[in-house]
Structures are given as C-alpha cells and as structure tokens.
Design a protein around this nucleic acid. Sequence first.
DNA 1: GATGAATGAGTTTTCATTCAT
DNA 2: TATGAATGAAAACTCATTCAT
Lengths: 188, 188, 188, 188
Amino acid sequence: MRQGVLDAVIGLLMRDGVQGITMDRVAMEAGVAKGTLYVYFKNKEEILDAAVEASFEPLIVELTGIMDADKAPDKRLEDFSRLNLQFFDEQQDLIRILFYDRERIHSEKNRFNDDRYLTLLSKVAEVLNEGVDTGLFAPMDSMKIAAMFIEANMGMVMQRIRDGISGDVEQDARQIISIFMEGLRRKQ
Amino acid sequence: MRQGVLDAVIGLLMRDGVQGITMDRVAMEAGVAKGTLYVYFKNKEEILDAAVEASFEPLIVELTGIMDADKAPDKRLEDFSRLNLQFFDEQQDLIRILFYDRERIHSEKNRFNDDRYLTLLSKVAEVLNEGVDTGLFAPMDSMKIAAMFIEANMGMVMQRIRDGISGDVEQDARQIISIFMEGLRRKQ
Amino acid sequence: MRQGVLDAVIGLLMRDGVQGITMDRVAMEAGVAKGTLYVYFKNKEEILDAAVEASFEPLIVELTGIMDADKAPDKRLEDFSRLNLQFFDEQQDLIRILFYDRERIHSEKNRFNDDRYLTLLSKVAEVLNEGVDTGLFAPMDSMKIAAMFIEANMGMVMQRIRDGISGDVEQDARQIISIFMEGLRRKQ
Amino acid sequence: MRQGVLDAVIGLLMRDGVQGITMDRVAMEAGVAKGTLYVYFKNKEEILDAAVEASFEPLIVELTGIMDADKAPDKRLEDFSRLNLQFFDEQQDLIRILFYDRERIHSEKNRFNDDRYLTLLSKVAEVLNEGVDTGLFAPMDSMKIAAMFIEANMGMVMQRIRDGISGDVEQDARQIISIFMEGLRRKQ
DNA sequence: GATGAATGAGTTTTCATTCAT
DNA sequence: TATGAATGAAAACTCATTCAT
C-alpha cells in the first residue's frame, strides 16, 4: 500500500513534474481513496520526500557499495561514473525529481536529503583520500573535489539527456575518469 | 516599476524559495497593488522567468565576455571558474534560484532558460574546441565536457557554501582548472 | 462587506448552532464567494470570534454605560439586570452563541473574549466597591460577588427562556435585585 | 471496556476540550481499536453524552442527596454551595465539559442533559418552596430563583478558578448563602 | 467481540487572475 | 496606469464510519 502510493508518486513525478502532483491525482494513480494517503503519510510534503527517497534509494545503495568495494580508487570512481550514467539512462525522468530534491537540499526543512547527499559526498571524499594515501592522487581538499566530481557526473548525465542519450555509457564514463585522472591537456 | 517588481521576486526567491512566491507576496514586497503586476507581466510564469533572467544576467554577460576574450583557452576557463566562484560567494542566496532555474530547464514550457543555459554551454564548448584546434587539448566531445565543466564548477560553489565559504576563490579556481588540465593523478 | 459576513455568521449561528457553520454556508449566506471570506478574515476561527464579538458588542457597550452612570450603585445593578433580561428576551437565540462563547472564554486561545468578559466583571465589581465605600453594602470580595451577580442574572435569563419568556422583565429584574439587596429571608 | 472508553473521553475532554475529541484519539487514549468504539456505542454523539453523564453523575447524586436531606432548607442550600465549590476545586477541568454540556442543554438533540439539569433545578426549587412553606423564605417564583442560585454558584466557582482557587471553600459557600439569605445591604 | 485498514464526503484553505473604478 | 476587492476553481486535509477478517 505504502509502496503503491510511492510508485504512483514517482509515476506522476516523471510524467508531470513536481508541480503536477496533487493528492487527488496521487490517490487516483495509486488506486486508493484520498483519505487513505493520510493514513500512511502526514501530509503532501512527507509523501514527496518519501517518494524521492524511495526512488534514489537503489542508486544510493549501489553507489555506496561501489565506494566501499575492494578496488583501486580510480577504478571505483570509474564504476561510480558508469553506474551513475546507466541509472539515469534508464530513469532519465527521475532527473526532474533530482532537481526537486536538490532544491530541497538547501531548504531548512529537509535534513534527511541533506544527509543522504552528504553521506555520498563523504564516501567519495574517502575514496579520494585513499587515493592520496596510496600515492595515486596528489594531495587535495577532498570534499571539494568530491563535490566537483559528483556534479561533473551530473553534468555529463544531463548533457547525455539533452543529446537524447547519445554515445554509450562506457565511453562517457571513461571520458569523465580520463579528465579527472589526466586532465584535458593533450599528452605529447 | 517593472524593475521594482523583479527585485521583489528575487528577494522572495532568495528568502523563501520558489514555493514561497505568491502574487500577493510579490505585490506586497514590491509595494504595488496586486493588479498592477498584471499591467507589466502577463502572468506569474512571466514574472518568475523575467526575475531569474534579471538575476543571472550580470553573471551570464560577464561569463560570455570571458569566453570571448582574447586569451588562451585554458586561461579563459580559469577566468570562468574564478568569476563563477566570486559571483556565488557574493550572492550565495541566488543558488536557490539556480535550482529553480535548473528544474525549468528540463520542463517543456521554458524555452528561454534553456536558451540561456545552452548559449553558455556552447560558448564553453567553443573555447574547448579552440583549445583542441590549437593543440592545447586532446580531441573530445566538447559539449559533454563543457557540461561537465560547468557542473563541476557548480559542485565547487556548493561545497564552498556548505563549508561556509572557506578557502579563497583564487585557490579553488586554480584547483578546478588544475584537475581539468592535469587530472588528479600525482605527477612523479 | 465585513459586516455582511458577520451578519451571515450570526444568522447561521442562530439557526443551526456552532456546528452548523461551514465556510461554504457562510459565503452563500453572505452572498459572496468563499474565497472572499479569506480576504477579510484569516481563518474560520477568526470569523467566529469576530461574529461573537460583534453580536455582544451592543450589550457590552450598554451594560458598561450603565455601570458608569451617575446613579446609586443598587440602581445601577438593577438597570444592569433589566437591560440584560431585555436583551436576551429580544435576542434569545444569541444564548446559543453565548454558550459557545463561554466555552471559548476558558480556552487558552481566546484572550479577547476573556478580556471582554473580565472587563464587564471588573466594572460590576467597581460598582459593588462604590456601594461598600458609600456604606450601602457590607464589605465583600467584590470580584467573587460580581461573578455571582452576573451568573445569577444569566440563570434568570435561562429560566425565563425555558419558561417561554414568562413574566415581565421589570418584575424579574426587581426580583434579582431584591435578593441581592435583601436576601431570601422573609421579613417579619 | 465501556468504562475505559468513557475515562478516555473524559481525559481528552479535560486536556483538549470538545474540539479536540476525535474517534481516533479516543481509541488511542482508551487503548482499543477504533472499530471497537462502535461495538459499544452507536456513534460519536453517544460516546460524548455517556462521558458527560458519567463525569457529572457523582456530583448530581450527591447534590440530589443533599437536597433530600433532613435539614433546614437554608442549611441544605449551604451544603449545596459547599459541595459544589469543593467538587469543582478538585475537578476544575470539568468546567470545560460543563460548558460543552451547557451548550447542548439548549440544543434540540440532547434531552438527557436537559433532564439532568432540570431535575436538579426542580430539586432546588422544591427546597426553596419548603422554605417558603415553613415561613423561612418570602414567597417567590421558585424555579427562577433556583436557576439564579445555581448559576450564582457557578459564577463563584468560575471566579475562584480565575483567581487560582483563592480563599477557602467554607467561607465562599457562606458568602453565597449570606447573600441569598440576607442580601448585600449593610446591616446597621 | 475486536480489529484497523480503507473510505469519501465534507471542510478548510490557497492563490492566480479579473475587472470596475 | 494603477488599484484592490472579489472571485472560484483547485488544492489540501479531516474524520466519523464501515467492513472484511
């Protein structure tokens, strides 16, 4: 039931965007009565939050798993990029939710989203630090670089979407890693 | 008058976010009657768009100028990063608007924002292409890299804000450029 | 407009009681759109409070005037009783509101009603004190006696209503005063 | 079970007032399922009525007993006042219920409350009549005076509560009786 | 008897927009 | 131009009641 409602929200979110979400529509889409929504969720905000949470859960879990994997740091970052691109290729409409989500990141109300994002951020920073410790990377302010890395990945995701998912994931993931590993400069 | 209304919207957007914008509040903040808003703007959407346009106009103009400057491509990218960081250091509340704006980028309604963003994106891509042409950069899919670059810059901006604007702009700008130029890998 | 809404509320309150008040009905009765109600009042509670306030305003004003009149204290109390009985004879449906109102008096939310009631209470107590000062009354805890006096008057009002407004006002007012002046005991 | 539900209602009534009563809350407070309430009571109204009935039962029983006691009428009235003050000193939150109850007295639905109140009223009137018959009191419209007496007692109760239960019960009870017996006028 | 999930009609509230002045 | 009172459609939310288990 709860899950059914969340699925309905995700569906509507994908189809009509955040502004298109009304409790009426959610109820209809979920095939329950409007009042039922309030049995499981306190109010609209809570439904939206739960839906966003639910839709990114799998990605977060997998990305976190990757960050903890037993591989070289640069390989893990590459896996991160690959998985990220894949996920949004398949769920590109979720981008819209992501932006909804991101806006909330900086709102005072929603600590949870902050936490989730920040946890991932820290995980990436840890991997960068590992890379520094093992002599793979030069010393850096790892939190800032982690933020850059995540956002750069999202930039690539969005550009792919604008292009209509052109090019394959593998190649774009390597492209990201190549830049972060080697920079843009031509090697002579 | 028109400008006063736009300033009011910006103020509200900064203070309360997109959800906090109502025509009532805009009118009150601008010190005009609600009906007056409709003398200058067709509807709410137009007001929002115009306000976002107005607030990012200076940044866009300057960034565009930088992209067209007569400097080496890598220097121009460095200037881009520096200006970007500076702008958001001074106007960090505008971040909220940015997210509003971003969400709209992917909505079907708002061609303008798309255009503005895409124009900048193209400008950056052009610079990258110039760099490729002059042998400074290796060949690349310049639109994707441009998207990554812009988003990576925003990642840095956001991390700076989360840190409470720690570290100076100059250093962080160089950090971004260093990564995109040289990558993360330790030089032996 | 505001007044029209209040009149509508009073009308509904008299006809259907507090529970029968809905914003829909109020709007319909007042002949305005539902939304208009929210132009003049913040919410339902405020409308109810304002309506109760408005309906007792005349009585309060007159009773206050009587308490300040230039007459002997016992005469003023007699006038109080007479006016009170008269008012509720004419507006007996307001009794219902009064009871609604009284409930609110002791709720934590509604300071205003408290104030209004307490002001009248103090006025009556003052008159009693004057009577004590001039040697007309024996010393007393005037606030408590004032409360008793007001409530005793309301008891009479209610019994008159239960009886179907039997007996004339003049006689019942004198009855009240006679008790408070002379007590129930038979004079030999 | 039934009693547990009634206790729950009383508790809620005391804590949050009439408006705060929902079947949900009653069920939760009583520690039963919502549906169970409908096994023992037909609907919400019946629950409220039964709860009010239950809470005033002890007072009513005792007051009635006092009215039937084998004492002089004025002594019985004094006992009435004393018991009344005591009861509400101990249960002052019940005042709220009383007002709820009073509102209902004048509604068409609730015959029971009316009956209960009117029974007490009649009892008091009977005592007054006895007093008249035995030559203790002057002739009077005993129902009206009974109503005044009861309400005057409630006025004292409420003033005591407003004062924070100042003064002792004994003294205030005597004060009420003194007024009804001798009036306010100074004895020379 | 007891449950509690589900209901949906009814209610309050919001707010972009209009329009007579 | 400027106003601001009025609108009403749409939205959020409440809660007494039912019913299959």
